[in-house]
Design a protein around this nucleic acid. Sequence first.
DNA 1: CTTTGGTTTAACTATTTAGTTTAAAACAAT
DNA 2: ATTGTTTTAAACTAAATAGTTAAACCAAAG
Lengths: 224, 224
Amino acid sequence: MNKDNQTDQIILEAARRVFQRSGYGGARMQEIANEAGINKASLHYYYRSKEKLFQTVYRQDIKVFLVPLVGILRDPFLTLEVRMRTFVGSYIKTLLKNPGLPLFIMQELSSNPGRLISLVEDHVPGVRSRSADEEESPMLAVFIGQIRNGMDDGSCNKVDPEQFILSMISMCVFPFVGRPLIRLLLKKGEQEYRDFLARREEEINEYLHRILFRNHQPIDGPRY
Amino acid sequence: MNKDNQTDQIILEAARRVFQRSGYGGARMQEIANEAGINKASLHYYYRSKEKLFQTVYRQDIKVFLVPLVGILRDPFLTLEVRMRTFVGSYIKTLLKNPGLPLFIMQELSSNPGRLISLVEDHVPGVRSRSADEEESPMLAVFIGQIRNGMDDGSCNKVDPEQFILSMISMCVFPFVGRPLIRLLLKKGEQEYRDFLARREEEINEYLHRILFRNHQPIDGPRY
DNA sequence: CTTTGGTTTAACTATTTAGTTTAAAACAAT
DNA sequence: ATTGTTTTAAACTAAATAGTTAAACCAAAG
């Protein structure tokens, strides 16, 4: 009986676009229906309510956004250098495919923390726990440990590990969050800005090396 | 006749909080009235419509957010090193006072670029112009020129100036945009995170020096 | 071809929300 | 006190929007 139906997927993608553009409060069910090319009643047929539809979308988006991030940050088998490279590379690529993701996630998390924190926790086990035997962010324990070791054995410059990690994340994510403003500032067209972001991966890696590694020799080459 | 009235200011601040929390679409006039401790009718007495109230708030916020940024970026009298220091210092301080600002601005800019680009341009003259005699972002021409000079005379390492400037902005702004998520990741309380951000200024300065200046010696000192 | 069950649609209802009206209270100046 | 103006509050209206219903549609099974 089941029509080989992608309708629910079409709806989900349409809803994602609209929610990302306008947020939960600003999104209209009618607009989502139009975007999906269906009737508004069908929307309620597939997803009981706006809230339900939103949660489905948001859950997926959190997963896409957070799972790779957290996975790489606390993978116990990566060296410090590879961890950084992998993080930057995988993150820029994820975000190039989903440019609207981070702003959307931050938006909703900020307007309704209570309702959504639990969703975050589903995908990032251990965010809440702060048990006595773990002195600090267990999420980042390995990463921070590697940086501390590097500072002790002289291979790393002095940094506050948390500030360093936050800087790494900032350099990757902010260009997407601040896209419209930065595009205005740099006077770049849509495609031009995409290229700019694609080139950004290696530039960030170079910066992070200059910050962290004592023996790193800044690359040379043709001036930009 | 005029009661020495702060009511319109109280309304404006209440509206700012609600708009920053929920965005234009998600904000409710009733909620703003409650937040200001007045009746909804008084809201319309002071500000004719939601749109009008929003524009007043948004205009001010863009000013607070952009004017110092742009001012420092293109001040013709600052040296490269002072420009960077001043930018980071003044920006972190501005944002500590208005933590919700950047997310709010990005949000609305993304959901309604057309309506707002013109507001941005009011405060940032020259954003639109791309005349033939200006080869690139005139907004950043001086800053970029200084970096190029530094690379030519050997005092600066090789960077893409635009990527470098974007990194500087990212490190300053993202910790505020991503606040809820980063707080979760670092497991910091509200006050703890504020302190963390206050310490961030000098850490960013150090990072930027390591990236850009050829002869910079990484500071030493007690491990974090 | 007709029954059956999921799917789609147009029209409808209920609720929320921006904005208005009106009248009373508060206030300032005389 | 008196008067005229500004401000406030409650109740109201109009519009927008989430959600429902019931009938039509359609594809597969009998």
